[in-house]
Design a protein around this nucleic acid. Structure first.
Lengths: 231, 231
DNA sequence: CAAATTATTTTCCGGATTGGACCAAATAGT
DNA sequence: ACTATTTGGTCCAATCCGGAAAATAATTTG
């Protein structure tokens, strides 16, 4: 027996084996996919194990139980997203606020395209109150939201973003960006849009900018306003 | 035994009893709620029956099986929505296209507030390919989408709606409108928004109009362009 | 290499849940 | 009052559930 999930092992008396991290990752990816499709309740650990091509008791071994697996999976995908977001923020830190927000939206859309589960899991969990939703908000959503809303508010003051309740505006951007990609299956059949076409992705990004950030940056604006990355 | 669901009875040798339609409606409402929360796979017929306060074998009696119940529930909510939409369209048929689209968005937002399941079910089913998704698109989504996209395209030509791919724009409106309401649980905790406050609803509607339909109608435009209701 | 530790496989469990069948009783139209 | 419709109560066989436990295999470390 072990006290903690292998992912957060405190004192590994011995090094973690390679195959271990491989199966953990296989399980995490499978879990994300399954949870995104069928929600927490609608997903069985056996389904996840099968998708991962792994014997189901390994879930107990590596993650203790279904709930911890869900949390580990959420950590996994949100941390990865946060990383690529911070990377982009750093690269664009010397550009105008509008360019920064623009880059941020592009990162989100790109990430949502490759990992639609990011958006789906959020929607799935928000469907009804649950301890997981509370945890997700506190642990991952709130920091990101606070940061983005603050940034968006500044753009509103500059006349770049549409005025109005900033939180509402932010969530509209989030839902549009993530939702379009998550609805890939439906969009094709109902609206003739091909999500896998890079041009469609571009069109989506540009449309979001055109709609939500229609204003131009004031010419006199000094581009150099440092933007700290998210904690 | 009966050949068809009671809802689509062909030759009722005797009239359908009142209490029958009551339990059917209770079941339909419960089904919509449950399917919206946990998806098709994640919902059990027993769960639905329990929510409806009805003995679960009645599902078999009234709807034959789980799948038919899902279809009946989808029919129910989409038909009701279509009705209130057509009503609003008729009432505003003498107004400008922008006012009509504005009214349409308000109807959608209001409906999504009282019946967030409308949006949730769509998202749930679009999560992965399924015969239900195909059916839903063909039966309900396509007619509505085609109508709305056509209307939106005209508004783009008039310079009222933001230019760009009309289908993308339409889906952004749809996701923003429905999504904000469907995410009620999350929005409160993560962004301090109270969905139950009528002012919030107003703010949302106005924001959507401000963002997606920023242009003014050309003054010279003749208001009287008849708009047929959806088939 | 050998021992100690970590990881995987295999088997099993008790219980809950699944969708659905069945029939007797109640109810409501005619 | 007669009869079709609707409901209540019970049951079932199958499957799936999350997890425990023990036997086996593979790796790291000394």
């Amino acid at each position: 027996m072990h006290e903690e999930s292998a992912l957060h092992n405190v004192q590994p008396a011995r090094k973690q084996q390679q195959r271990s991290v491989v199966t953990q990752q296989k399980l995490l990816n499978a879990a994300i996919e399954a949870f995104a499709e069928n929600g927490f309740k609608g997903t069985s650990t056996r389904d996840i194990a099968e998708r991962a091509g792994v014997h189901h008791p390994l879930i107990t071994y590596h993650f203790k139980n279904k709930d911890q697996l869900w949390r580990a999976a959420a950590d996994y995908i949100f941390t990865a997203f946060s990383a690529s977001l911070n990377k982009s923020l750093k690269e664009h830190s010397n550009l105008s606020p509008k360019s920064q927000m623009s880059a941020m939206i592009r990162v989100y859309v790109s990430y949502a395209k490759d990992h639609p589960a990011l958006h789906k899991v959020m929607v799935q969990e928000a469907s009804y109150p649950s301890p997981r939703l509370d945890w997700l908000i506190e642990e991952h959503l709130k920091p990101f939201f606070d940061f983005a809303i603050d940034m968006l508010g500044k753009l509103q003051q500059l006349g770049v973003a549409v005025p109005g309740n900033t939180a509402v505006l932010f969530n509209m951007i989030r839902l549009s960006s993530g939702g379009l990609l998550a609805l890939g299956n439906e969009l094709g059949d109902s609206s003739g849009l091909d999500i896998d076409d890079p041009e469609t992705i571009d069109e989506i990004c540009e449309m979001i900018l055109r709609v939500f950030l229609p204003g131009e940056m004031p010419a006199a604006y000094a581009a150099n306003t440092a933007v700290e990355s998210i904690a």
